[in-house]
Design a protein around this nucleic acid. Structure first.
Lengths: 242, 242
DNA sequence: CTATTATTCAATGGTATTATTGAATTATAG
DNA sequence: CTATAATTCAATAATACCATTGAATAATAG
């Protein structure tokens, strides 16, 4: 009973398709839980131990461990043992691209996301925002001070080349360290992260001219813009793509 | 009890994050079922009625309808009523990009997909394959005959500019219609579709020099390469991006 | 209006996921 | 070797999802 000209029956084709889509769905399943998406989002900043991940995503250790296991089985994250700790990281840059694609699709299609963000991030409307291309240009012209307001650890794991680390929590006490007069652009983890918003607000309150970068560090790095790794506050930009 | 310098409590931030990731997970959930992924894949070829979708994906009507409803609630597909039928289509090109990203992530990360495809598509190894850029060049040089071996309906809904429609089922009986002497490149629905493989095999058996395009029509169209819509076999290439 | 076709809705068991708990590993320190 | 810390595993109950069935709705034809 062949309807196709070649040596495969319809039944075999159906079995092939079923297996193929089942495999793709394994990845889809991994994206089906809010907690796992949040873990992916945290991991986009760099590798983290189970404990750090659990705390960052407000999960119990055991729960975080299980979700990480699910992500690992879908091969979206990899792990590495160091002493008594296990560190997880994204499996590849493609995984971040997938997460980005999911975000932008959802953003474009779900009005609810608009509603959630505008009620919470309403002040963002009034803030000036800078796109990545504009920032790159102004960085090249040395026209601007770029501020990484994420926790220092995340800055060390990778930051925009030329950016200064000034974690949000220390911003108010260390304002004097900022070169005076220059415009400031703050950035943080991603488009939905509020650190940069709060930094801009604080800076404005102290009479500084500040705006926020519309994307976060992982997006910047993924699009191949210049980044740096390590402690150096860095006026020596190194280039490294994704 | 504020730990942040601005006017939002940690609790409010957590609620914001929870709601945000819950919304993203709504899209993720929609990608968690093999059947829904297959429906998306079919819809990437063009809009379809519930009945067509059910038959193509080997589902009962009621089941297909429910899965389509789930996709619709995630805003990944849109629908349109025409008489007594309801036609579904992808919500936007971004949805296809998401599906592509899921596929390529899964392909890169899941060795199982390799195993499934190589056991079923083993003959593909021995076949010549042409990439999209090479095909575009050779189309411009009019060096080649491009064959769309999908069902005629799908050709009508959109095809590679300059391609001839010759559904796989009719290939053997209509071989004479093919311009003699020229090399042939066949394509079908996507990288995992077997129509083109079978066409190449049939053509080779009849002494024709044939190879397959490594991607399918939706991928071609999504990357902005020239396409055409309608019945015309078309030597008048129209351009339409995604 | 009635019959027919296409689709959706609602209810049903069956199955799979989820968060929690507490025990079991794995590695380090003493 | 023992104690401790970090993580994973295993078992559990609550929940959510799934495919099927049959009834309900929408649109068309007669």
């Amino acid at each position: 009973m062949r309807t196709s000209p070649s040596g495969t029956t319809d039944l075999e084709k159906r079995e092939f398709k079923d297996r193929l889509y089942a495999e793709f769905a394994r990845v889809g399943r991994a994206l089906a839980s809010p907690h796992r998406l949040e873990l992916l989002d945290v991991l986009a900043q760099g590798e983290r131990s189970v404990e750090e991940l659990a705390s960052e995503a407000a999960l119990s250790i055991a729960n975080a461990s299980q979700h990480l296991r699910a992500l690992h089985q879908a091969h979206l994250v990899e792990m590495r043992r160091e002493g008594s700790r296990v560190y997880y990281r994204l499996g590849s840059p493609e995984v971040f691209a997938l997460w980005q694609s999911l975000q932008s699709t959802a953003e474009a299609r779900l009005a609810e996301i608009d509603r959630v963000t505008t009620t919470f991030l309403s002040r963002r409307e009034e803030m000036e925002a800078v796109g990545p291309e504009e920032l790159r240009r102004r960085l090249e012209d040395d026209d601007i001070t770029v501020l990484d307001v994420r926790p220092a650890l995340e800055y060390r794991q990778g930051h925009i080349a030329g950016a200064i680390s000034l974690p949000l929590e220390e911003l108010e006490t260390r304002l004097a360290e900022l070169p005076p007069g220059r415009q400031i652009v703050a950035y943080c983890r991603g488009p939905y992260c509020v650190y940069a918003d709060e930094a801009v607000e604080t800076l404005s309150r102290h009479g500084r001219s500040a705006s926020r970068l519309v994307i976060g560090y992982p997006d910047w790095a993924a699009s191949g813009l210049p980044i740096a790794v390590g402690v150096g506050g860095g006026s020596s930009p190194s280039r490294s793509g994704a």
